[in-house]
Amino acid sequence: MLTDEQRAALGDWVKSVTPRALAYARSLVRASDRADDVVQECLFRLLRRANEYDLARDGVKLLFTAISNLCINQATRQRELIGLGTSVDDDRLFDVADRSVLQPDQIAEHRELENRVREALQKLPPMQRAAVELRALGMSKEDIAESLGISPTNAGVLVYRGRKLLAVELQPILGKTNSEDSA
């Protein structure tokens, strides 16, 4: 059994990471109850051995790695990585695709855009979607690579391609917003 102190500390950490972990899992598996089960199982596996980890330092990465592993099957990983070369300039992969957009808090309030973003993300292949979302959650290229079980170069390629596809998908709305801004 956990002591009350350990339980409280773990509880605080779980409550901090769970909302975004669930959002990530739901994006990957779509069915919300299945995503809940995945996150619950990953948290349980992680916390049962909490004494072996530095949760504050590595917990998020370990949790998202476990979620990625459960949500994206091996066949999908291999298929998507076929043809990904190392010729792309790594430093360019994380360049910002388009800086002339609304601020996140404004965007989140915009229901139509929210739906469009959700739909656009769902059009990405799972590995690209995972890579883009992990990047958006603040992970480095190395951390994304570790979470998805691929090389940092491939992680960069996935993020780059994912962003590019999203920019195309969202162009109608982003373009309209930009023109409204400039008007």
Partner: peptide, 19 residues
């Protein structure tokens, strides 16, 4: 635990995940 995203597509995706 979750550093702020870069502006642009990352920020849009982050806003979606946060919503």
């Amino acid at each position: 635990l979750f550093p702020p995203p870069e502006p642009g597509i990352d920020a849009i995706v982050r806003a979606q995940l946060d919503a």
